[in-house]
């Protein structure tokens, strides 16, 4: 196996697109959710590192669409379509992340439960586009690094204490 491929890196509140044989990766997901939307036949995939559920809470200037579940999925669809994925071609999704990194004993603020809220928002958004989630590794208390291979449609999920698994 000496096939060369590149790994496209996606930062926090960022998104990207990849085509086989290349792979796409985002590191250190905590409460954030990594969403992959892919097409098996075209071997193309978009990945977003989503930080917050809803862009309506944004009070600043210059909205970063990749940051929010409701805007990132839409942006990923646009990106996929601009890369030759037709409007009604079958798409699937895999998601990982949405952990709660710190177990707070008292005064749990709403922002501490951001992980589950992110997961719920992503699920709801994917449902809007009729994109089935074929596998997921969400919740818990561990950070995750994910890498998607559009060749095999497998998402590898690495955690510090539980090694790497493929979903």
């Amino acid at each position: 196996m000496s096939e060369t491929f590149e790994i496209v890196k996606v930062g926090i509140a960022d998104l990207g697109i990849v085509q086989a044989p290349n792979r796409i990766r985002t590191s250190g997901l905590g409460s954030c959710v990594g969403v992959v939307i892919f097409n098996v036949h075209l071997k193309i995939a978009a990945l977003a590192h989503i930080m917050l559920p809803d862009s309506t809470t944004f009070r600043g200037e210059g909205l970063n669409k990749a940051k929010y579940a409701n805007t990132a999925i839409e942006e990923m669809m646009t990106l996929l379509q601009s890369h030759g994925v037709r409007r009604y071609s079958p798409l699937k999704a895999k998601i990982a992340g949405g952990a709660q990194m710190f177990q707070m004993t008292s005064g749990t603020k709403e922002s501490m439960r951001i992980g589950p809220r992110n997961v719920a928002a992503v699920k709801q958004e994917l449902l809007k586009y009729n994109i089935p989630i074929v596998s997921a590794d969400v919740g818990g208390a561990s950070g995750r690094t994910v890498e998607f291979n559009p060749e095999t449609s497998m998402l590898s999920v690495r955690t510090v204490n539980h090694g790497t698994k493929e979903i």
Partner: peptide, 20 residues
């Protein structure tokens, strides 16, 4: 005890609602 990205984003949730 975990990854930097996973841990530090906990402190960024409020901030990220107004700035990048």
């Amino acid at each position: 005890v975990d990854m930097v990205g996973a841990i530090l984003t906990v402190g960024l949730i409020e901030l990220s609602q107004v700035t990048d």
